[in-house]
Amino acid sequence: MMGSLGILTYFTNGGEVMSVAKITDIPPAVPGLFTLPPYDMCPPMLLGGFCQVCNRYYFPRPRYCRVCLGEVVETTLGSKGTIYCFTVVLRKAPLGLPNPYGVGYVDLTESGLRIFGLLDPAAIGRIQIGMRVRLAVAPLGDDGHGSPRLRPYFTPV
């Protein structure tokens, strides 16, 4: 969704395409869930937690390990997964998300976690259960008051 000359385009409520400032100027909708741009060196990835004692992954990263209450270190959870299930919301999109928008549960390849996430608005007609997807990050929706926010979403590989 990156436009030419570093100007970014994104979908808004109503499906129109808007242009805004540089991606690095836009804050994430939720801090700590995914790696932030620029993505010159490596693709966007989800951020989670790992307890080295219990050998357990978490998403999002909790303050304490839920088994041993020990330290949970921040870790990347990769960018690849498989669609377990998905749906499309056709009415009253919240937070400036496009109408319609898709969400799903994705089985992450590296950690085995099954997590909730947005789907690529440009690809919701093509998404299927069992499909391999990768993570992307772009301005998608807003903060509830019209200021754009970065959100992670899954797009077909």
Binding site: P60, P94, L95, L97, Y101, V103, F116, L118, R151
Partner: peptide
């Protein structure tokens, strides 16, 4: 966070 990612 799930609400922020579109869960209703």
């Amino acid at each position: 966070w799930e609400t922020q990612l579109g869960q209703v």
